[in-house]
């Protein structure tokens, strides 16, 4: 199919160095990722108490899981969280990126990007701790409503079933996620000048430019970010853990990741926890594939680009180690 070097080079000799170069990657992955992952899948078929004995139960854990009202509740909660966070974490950074992109001064523009990226350095725990203070009885939200003379609007924000989940979701405020802004901005800079200039000559206003040029050409970035966000939200539970402790009141803020954590390390049901992990994995995989289909697009506006290899474009994110 392709010609690499001279024609005399045999197929094996051509391919061997390639395998040699990717070998270290795969050795590491095998030891530290594939094998533990395999173990986890394997253990999802067991009733397994860490350090104790493991009993094979087949798909028993999965049957139990789908009948488990707590798991169902956690799925509903995570659904709401995913929807909310997907919307705000994809739109607000887009707005900010557009605003930055509008600024002509190279220096201000650069400084702004650095500034918005900087908060990535703040440990997330600091932000959650701060929000716990904001939501507390002595917190600013309560004091503010008291000052405004609306004591009936005051809730125990993280304890009340009406407000707890919303309170958790809102801790991302103002949702200007540095990483997302940079991705959008990069996408914007990749739009060829010529297209924008011709639009300008046609007298298109900023909204039209955004709607008809930026948005379609940013589809690649949107696709990437939506998958990244989804995966981060789906398996994240530290925020809930820090904010409401157990996903309460009742099960109002429980999420699958937290439920898995409790099963594994509090209820001593590692097999069941693994089963939850397997389900999460499947959902993420399905979403990624669907996203792939739905948002299929061709951002390939660089005319000279030649595709020779089969395009493998699965946009996904790596979990924390």
């Amino acid at each position: 199919m392709k010609k690499y070097g001279g024609k005399t080079v045999s197929r094996w000799n051509r391919v061997a160095p390639l395998y040699g170069l990717i070998l270290p990657t795969f050795v590491l992955l095998l030891v530290f990722n594939y094998y533990p992952a395999f173990l986890a899948f394997f253990r999802s078929l067991y009733e397994w108490d860490v350090g104790g004995k493991a009993v094979f139960v087949g798909l028993g854990n999965f049957y139990e899981l789908f009948a488990d009202p707590i798991f169902r509740k956690s799925a509903i909660n995570i659904g709401k969280l995913v929807l909310f966070i997907m919307v705000v974490n994809l739109t607000v950074p887009l707005l900010v990126a557009e605003l930055i992109f509008m600024i002509r001064s190279e220096r201000v523009n650069y400084a702004l990007r650095v500034l918005f990226a900087l908060p990535m350095l703040i440990p997330p725990i600091v932000i959650w701790v701060l929000w716990k203070f904001i939501y507390s009885d002595a917190g600013i939200l309560t004091v503010l409503l008291e000052t405004l003379g609306k004591p009936e609007w005051i809730y125990g924000w993280l304890s009340h079933p009406k407000t707890a989940l919303a309170a958790v979701a809102f801790t991302g405020f103002p949702f200007a996620v540095g990483f997302n802004i940079l991705v959008y901005y990069t996408g914007l800079t990749q739009i060829p000048r010529s297209i924008l200039e011709s639009a300008h000559l046609d007298g298109a206003g900023p909204w039209q430019v955004f709607r008809h040029i930026h948005l379609p050409l940013l589809r690649g970035s949107i696709k990437l970010l939506s998958v990244l966000t989804l995966i981060a939200v789906l398996q994240g539970f530290e925020s809930v853990y820090v904010l409401t402790g157990d996903g309460g009141p009742g099960y109002e803020t429980i999420v699958p990741g937290l439920y898995m954590f409790f099963n594994g390390f509090t209820y001593n049901r590692m097999g069941y926890a693994c089963a939850i992990g397997v389900v999460l994995f499947t959902v993420m995989l399905l979403f990624t594939l669907v996203n792939q289909r739905l948002l299929r697009c061709d951002t390939d506006y660089t005319p000279e680009k030649k595709r020779r290899r089969p395009a493998l474009k699965l946009r996904v994110h790596q979990p924390r180690v």
Partner: peptide, 17 residues
């Protein structure tokens, strides 16, 4: 206090509320 889950209570007490 309305919030049952969080221990910002020292501040609640110390600020005389």
């Amino acid at each position: 206090g309305k919030e049952l889950k969080y221990s910002d209570t020292s501040r609640f007490f110390l600020t005389r509320r």
